[in-house]
Design a protein around this nucleic acid. Structure first.
Lengths: 331, 331
DNA sequence: AGGGGTCAAGTTAGCGCAAACATGAGGCGC
DNA sequence: GCGCCTCATGTTTGCGCTAACTTGACCCCT
């Protein structure tokens, strides 16, 4: 910076003003400084700036598994939004959520100088005694709002209700369920909403099969569930497992949708091209990421108390996409 | 830090030594300092450390699209490895690779203080006049080695050869191809290797269909390709498009694998559960990420000239996974 | 017993930047 | 025409840490 200042014949402070786009600099001076910067290939040292300002221009994202379908989409929109706002994104993945690991990850992030943290899927927060950093704003992405921090997420229950309602409306006596990973929060909420929806319609609530989100587990659940000939409709907690269920149905000679209706969850991009095209619940995870980020940045930049008004729309409603894997039961 | 020093009755320097695990500190002093840190909840300010040392403890990853199947897997392994080695990972996604955007992203990363950069899929490097930062080591993840930086990737050609060879061995007269996004490097290499493999086997090389990696585009390509009844075998450049091709085949009454053999690429987790289970090419992208990272960190920490020995195994061989979507042609 | 070595700690300086304050030139009103 | 205000720019200072050097206590050897 000193070199630039010398070459432009100004003080370091003026260079700083130009770099940070302050006003109160003559156009001519600005030009001279910019020319000098160009010539010298000057790059601001962000560590020094951070030290001087206390701001880092970085947002930390903590999650369990990057490759989980939903997480990618959220991270993608967070990264895009952060870039647009001049922030960079630092990733921390806690594969094995022991308390030790989680603490280390969070600590690693805050040590690493972030202005704010987004925690995806708050199962992390169930860790006993876990303290989230207090120095920086935190936003949670989760589908329940029982957190101490502002929370954004999907309205899982609405999605599950739509799926079950669709099947009931088609005339199925009841709807079976293949649940996701038991200690996952979305899985539990989808399962609970499925159960409530059946009860409200006065239907028998069958025992739910349990998977782990993987196609394998969906296949296994399907093989087991479909031995029962009375099963005519299945709501599967995600599309990946639904693929497994479709496979099991095929192997067991159950035609979809004639003998069996299947509804998935997520609307992965290939689901319209499955055989048959899968009826599923579409989630706008990008919106969730965007909102979380907006809220976080607002907190960072206002540095005031968080504007967590109760009336902010914090849970995005998913949407049922009806395709060819569901139909009225044969009689 | 000053507070810790005072509480422990030592100098700031001694605190620094304890934090950084230097020796030459009495066990007793170390204890006192650690107790003080604990009590005060002391966290080192990484910006200050970076300013003093010139090291940032961060690795930048530049890519086009986070949600591309391969990229996620690479990023995931890079993040895991980086965490294990005490680095954090900063993401830069360049959705629209105009030169301006690419430069901004790379510049953003280096401005943002990274010790090294991993560039995924070097299409980025085709941008004319693009200068990668010179101050930090760079590792490229790509499937060709014509870069100025150390490069790691998949042996795309070997994968494509295995796929084509398998279909030829089954007795198909020739093999059609659905290619990926035209300006993508893996797409081009798979297509070229498919062509070479056919030529080497003295087969007719049909015109290849072109998709964009998406299931939709695979479906469209399939609808078009399969109107030709002489098509008995298709090598599709990724699994997503293969799903579309399977769908098109189903709609056109072509039974797989009896009337038509299909091979995909990637071995996505649901492919064993498609109808029929898809024969595909499995890539160990995690290995690619791990190696790239190891190499990058070695460069960072040695600070010497890059040890890019020609004999390092830099291209990982994929593996053909034969399932039920391929069979000998009916005669 | 004195010199030199070893080791644990302290002291000093500076990394590169931006906030806060200081300066000085010019313009405006009455 | 004089004071005062505005605006562009310069100066000072300190962000929190670590590298390099310094100090002083103690020990061992001759």
């Amino acid at each position: 910076m000193a070199d630039v200042a010398k070459l432009a014949g100004v003080s370091g402070q003026t260079v700083s003003r130009v770099v940070n786009g302050h006003d109160r600099v003559t156009a001519e001076t600005r030009d001279r400084v910019e020319t000098a910067m160009e010539r010298l290939g000057y790059r601001a040292n962000i560590a020094a700036r951070a030290l001087a300002t206390g701001r880092f221009g970085t947002i930390g994202v903590v999650m369990f598994k990057l490759s989980a379908v939903g997480n990618i989409r959220i991270v993608e929109s967070v990264v895009a939004g952060a870039q647009a706002r001049g922030y960079s994104v630092s990733l921390a993945v806690v594969e094995d959520p022991t308390e030790q690991n989680v603490r280390a990850a969070v600590r690693g992030l805050t040590d690493r100088a972030v202005d704010g943290v987004i925690v995806i899927e708050a199962r992390i927060l169930d860790t006993p005694h876990l303290k989230l950093p207090e120095e920086v704003p935190v936003v949670i992405v989760d589908s329940r709002s029982a957190h101490e921090h502002p929370t954004f997420g999907m309205d899982e229950a609405a999605g599950a209700r739509a799926a079950v309602g669709h099947l009931i409306d088609l005339g199925h006596a009841t709807v079976h369920h293949v649940a996701g990973l038991p200690d996952s929060n979305p899985a539990e909420r989808r399962r609970a909403a499925w159960q409530r929806a059946l009860k409200r319609s006065k239907r028998v609530v069958p025992e739910s099969a349990v998977g782990d989100w993987s196609p394998e587990s969906g296949y296994a659940a399907g093989r087991q569930l479909l031995t029962d000939a009375s099963v005519t409709a299945v709501f599967v907690a995600n599309d990946q497992m639904a693929v497994g269920v479709l496979r099991a149905a095929d192997e067991l000679g159950r035609r979809v949708p004639d003998d069996l209706s299947v509804v998935g969850f997520d609307d992965l991009d290939f689901t319209p091209y499955l055989t048959p095209p899968l009826t599923t619940v579409r989630q706008d995870l990008g919106a969730v990421g965007r909102r979380s980020l907006e809220h976080l940045i607002a907190q960072i930049e206002s540095s005031q108390a968080a504007p967590v008004t109760r009336d902010t729309v914090r849970f995005v409603r998913p949407e049922l996409v009806v395709r060819a894997s569901t139909a009225a039961p044969e009689r």
